[in-house]
Every structure is written in structure tokens, then in C-alpha cells.
Simulated assay, not measured.
Amino acid sequence: MTYLSPLGYLLGVEGAALLRGFKEGSADRAFVEARIAEIRTLLDTPALAHAEGVTAEPGTISTADVYQDWAPHYDAPGNGMIDLEQPVVRRILDGLPLGAALDAACGTGRHTAYLHGLGHHVTGVDASPDMLARARERLPDVDFHEADLHRLPLPDNAVDTVVCALAVSHVPELAPVLREFARVLRPGGHLVLSDAHLLSSYVRPTLPRRPGPDGRASLLTEYHRPLSAYLAAALPLGFQVRHCEEPRRPRGSLTPETAPDTLPTHMSWDLLHWYPEASAAALDDSPVAVVWHFQLDAARKGSPSDR
């Protein structure tokens, strides 16, 4: 069980701001005293002091359930991670040769559409029927398949490029998924992989979802990894690193003008806007995602399924 407390979260943000300030040398006396004063205020705020947190049970809601809820508004403006991840992915794709491409975990087809526009022959695969419905509406002339990343509906050596965006945090082990990508890629083919950054997961933990049958809130299980985990999974399969980038949250993204009218007493990212200086110190210029560009070794020997 995980107990998610709005007061606990804000105290954690204040603590993260202090620790980062100490580490980076930006925590002068005024900054430290301001954080301590805000901590005292937080502890004395009745709306927070008496607010009940939420006890959530990890693993009681599926990825399919979450994406069913997300599908209608996934492409709406303001998804901060997509806003930072997408330009990096597109810049990499702009430099790749045209050919057959797979958008694995394509979602609503945002990268599928870009690949298609560049001139690739694209196939889209996703496990969520709700997200695929949106993709098919957007791109009626593209082949989409409902399938899992562990069992891609493509033969060996079928594509020149694989894109997998913001999806592998939902799988418990990277190696089987990357092995499947290596199987469908031709020798010398390219893999562009993006994921939520491990550091971001600490300052913006997963929020609780709708209650389950027992009335408890649900917590989606996610797997956030250090950068070394991607290398440990990719290199033995014959992938070579061509580029790695960690898009960062821009400075000034949290301002007092965006504060809500009332103080939320439940776990919500709106809480961050009530103490923007601490939130900015903890979050600004911190990595939100990681984007990898791998290339499969053209001289790799053996069966694709053995990689």
C-alpha cells in the first residue's frame, strides 16, 4: 500500500528544493529561510493539516484501463512530457533514411503520422483499442494492429526503423521487448526509444486512479529505470548507441499566476503552484524524459530471434 498525502508531498517538494540548492550552490540564506518558513506554514495550514491522504494499492489498475481514460484527451495541448519529447524524436527521425517503419506502442498515432508524412511505409501497433481507434481516425490509410510489445505481428527483418515512445515504463523487463525490436529490424536498422526519466518520477510520483472493487484507490505500476538499464538491455542484442538526450523542464514553467483559486486537499499537481519558488527549485531544468537512438549492428550474425 502507498499512502499519498498532499501535505507530505509538498513537504517533500520543499525538501527536494533544499537538497538541490545545497548541491548546486544556489541555496543562499534567504532561499533556505524562505523554505523553512513555507514548511512552517504548510504544517500550520488547516486545509492540509486535516486533509486525509489517499491509500492506494499498486498494481490494481491495468495499463489498458488507464489508456482508456486517457484516449479522449491524450493529444490535447499541455502534455508537458510530450511537448519536450516529441521535438527530439522528430529531429532524429528527420535524419534517417526512408523505408519501412514500425511505430510500436503507437497510441493515437502522433509519431505514426510524422513518419507517414516523411514518406515511410508505416505500421502501427498498440495494446489499447481505445488509443488505436483514435489513430485509425487520424490515419485511415495506415495499417494498425492491436498487439503487445512482446509479440509484434511482423516477420523477422521486416522494417528499417522502429519507434517506441513513452511506453516501456509499463513493461517489467526491457530485454524481451528490445529483443523483439531487434527481431523485426533489418541489420543496420534504427531504434528510436523514448521513456519517462527516472528523476522525474521522484518529484512527480504516479497519482492514484479510480477506486477498485474494494473501494481503495488504484495505483498504476510503472517501471522507471536508470540510464544504465537501457544499455544493459540493448548492447548485448547488437544495438549501438548513436545518440542519447534528456529533455529538461524549462525554467519558469511554474509561476504564481497559474495558482488555482483554492488549495487542493487531495493529491494533485495543482499543489505545485501554491509554492512556485520551491517547486521551480525542485523541478526546473530537471530531466523529464530520455530519448535514445540505437542502430542495430549491420554485421550482427545469427538468427534475429537469438539476438
Score class of each variant (00 low, 15 high):
Asp69Ser: 15
Gly25Cys: 08
His121Trp: 03
Glu52Leu: 15
Ala76Phe: 04
Thr55Cys: 13
Asp285Thr: 05
His120Trp: 11
Leu237Pro: 00
Arg225Tyr: 04
Phe144Cys: 10
Leu7Cys: 06
Gly188Trp: 06
Glu277Cys: 01
His293Glu: 13
Ala16Ser: 15
Gly189Ile: 00
Phe239Asn: 00
Glu146Asn: 10
Gly117Ile: 01
Leu185Asn: 02
Arg242Tyr: 02
Thr258Val: 11
Arg204Ser: 14
Leu118Arg: 15
Asp214Gln: 09
Gln86Lys: 12
Val89Asn: 01
Ala167Arg: 00
Cys244Gln: 14
Glu146Arg: 14
Ser228Asn: 06
Ala196Leu: 11
Thr112Gln: 02
Gly78Ser: 09
Val192Met: 04
Thr255Glu: 12
His121Ile: 10
Arg138Gln: 11
Val122Asp: 13
Trp292Ser: 01
Tyr230Met: 02
Gly109His: 06
Gly117Asp: 14
Arg251Val: 07
Asp270Glu: 15
His197Gly: 07
Val203Lys: 10
Leu152Gly: 04
Leu98Pro: 05
Pro187Ala: 04
Thr55Pro: 00
Tyr275Thr: 13
Val177Gly: 03
Leu4Asn: 06
Ser26Met: 04
Gly59Glu: 11
Pro187Trp: 03
Ser128Lys: 01
Arg186Gln: 14
Phe144Pro: 07
Val32Ile: 14
Leu118Ser: 08
Leu139Lys: 04
Gly95Leu: 09
Trp274Thr: 11
Leu7Glu: 01
Val159Met: 11
Ile82Leu: 10
Trp269Thr: 14
Leu220Gln: 04
Gly302Met: 08
Leu263Cys: 08
Leu220Asp: 06
Asp270Trp: 03
Arg110Ala: 02
Asp261Met: 04
Pro58Arg: 07
Ile61Phe: 07
Arg179Cys: 05
His116Phe: 13
Glu146Pro: 06
Phe22Pro: 06
Leu10Ser: 10
Leu149Asp: 05
Arg20Pro: 04
Gly107Pro: 00
Ser268Ile: 06
Ala299Pro: 03
Arg216Glu: 09
Pro264His: 09
Arg216Ser: 11
Met267Ser: 08
Val89Trp: 01
Pro153Ile: 01
Thr55Ile: 12
Ile82Cys: 00
Ala76Asn: 14
Arg307Pro: 03
Ala30Ser: 13
Ser5His: 10
His73Leu: 12
Lys301Leu: 15
Asp214Asn: 09
Pro211Ala: 02
Ser305Phe: 00
Glu245Gly: 02
Arg249Asn: 07
Gly99Arg: 03
Asp284Thr: 06
Pro211Asp: 11
Pro250Asp: 03
Val241Trp: 07
Arg179Asn: 09
Ala175Asn: 08
Gly99Met: 08
Ala259Tyr: 01
Thr123Ser: 11
Val168Lys: 01
Ala27Gln: 07
Ala229Arg: 06
Phe22Lys: 13
Thr221Ser: 12
Val203Asp: 09
Leu43Ser: 09
Gly15Tyr: 01
Gln86Ser: 12
Leu166Arg: 05
Leu254Ile: 12
Pro247Leu: 02
Val241Arg: 08
Leu185Ala: 07
Asp75Met: 10
Ala64Ile: 15
Ala104Gly: 09
Ala104Glu: 04
Ala259Trp: 01
Ala232Ser: 11
Phe294Asn: 11
Tyr223Ile: 00
Leu149Ile: 03
Gly21Lys: 10
Pro153Ala: 12
Asp143Arg: 15
Arg29Gln: 14
Pro58Gly: 11
